[in-house]
Design a protein around this nucleic acid. Structure first.
Length: 260
DNA sequence: ATGGTTGATCCTCAA
């Protein structure tokens, strides 16, 4: 099964590029971030025409996540547990049945958190703590689970073009990386890092200041696998060429294969 | 070289 994550930065702006990528890449499951749409306005038909089931968790203007799957999506839940007052649409869960059993999919869009420090950064750290709690509960199931999305976390120095310049950024500062490290240390496998232990692995290039042509990128889109899913890992790829498409998102698709 | 782009919405905010 081929699983992908892509922050599309607006479904309306990517309504040509997304179906084109789906046709070329043929993923079985895709989680999307920053759909920037309410559920009722999400253009389902062009995706359903390609054979995908569509589940969205949207909000007006900002954020919003979705899962597309060629196989039926079951047990769909929306929203990250732990704070009933949180109105930001950043988490969706579902299960799919593969040929070799059940797979749980979590699609996530962690808060950016800038400027840091400040209330937005406090919200990011609180959200990460809530995700850590949800991940603990999921891991206890001892089943194949994949948590894919835009984590807004640069895990290590080799994941950013200029570590010193990013030292105080919410995506890289020490507290952020510590929180991410606590999550991974529960027992999750970073699929891209496991398959590509060295070399360049950026997933995001800012629209500004020629970041893409100058290759001033960062790696913030991740696929974390439970031990039972990591045992099934095949390949893991960053689809960098998509950044050169006409009217691109600032993120590119990241995908892996699981033997399930 | 403290630069400058995109998306959604309603002109400013978020990234």
């Amino acid at each position: 099964m081929k699983l992908a994550t892509w922050n599309i930065n607006g479904i309306k702006a990517r309504i040509d590029a997304l179906p084109e990528w789906l046709r070329q890449a043929q993923p079985d499951v895709v989680v999307l971030q920053e759909i920037k749409s309410v559920d009722d306005a999400f253009p389902r038909a062009p995706l359903e025409d390609l054979g995908y089931n569509v589940e969205t968790h949207g909000q007006k203007s900002f954020n919003g996540v979705a899962i597309l799957s060629k196989r039926p999506l079951e047990s769909v839940t929306r929203g990250l547990p732990g704070d009933a007052s949180d109105e930001q649409a950043r988490w969706i869960e579902a299960t799919v049945t593969g040929e070799a059993g059940l797979l749980t999919i979590c699609g996530l869009y962690q808060p950016n958190g800038n400027p840091a420090p400040g209330p937005k950064y406090d919200y990011k750290l609180a959200w990460m703590a809530r995700m850590e709690a949800r991940a603990t509960a999921l891991l206890a199931l001892e089943e194949p689970i994949a948590m894919l999305g835009d984590y807004n976390v640069i895990p290590q120095p080799e994941d950013v073009h200029d570590p010193a310049a990013w030292a105080e950024d919410a995506l890289y500062r020490t507290e952020t990386r510590q929180a991410y490290r606590r999550l991974v240390a529960q027992g999750w496998t970073d699929a891209i890092r496991a398959v590509n232990p060295v070399g360049e692995r950026f997933t995001f290039w800012d629209y500004q200041a020629g970041a893409w042509p100058r290759n001033k990128g960062i790696r913030i889109d991740h696929i974390l696998l439970s031990p039972q899913a990591a045992d099934l890992l095949g390949t893991a790829v960053i689809d960098k060429a998509v950044r050169d498409w006409e009217k691109p998102s600032d993120h590119v698709p990241v995908w892996c294969t699981l033997d399930i």
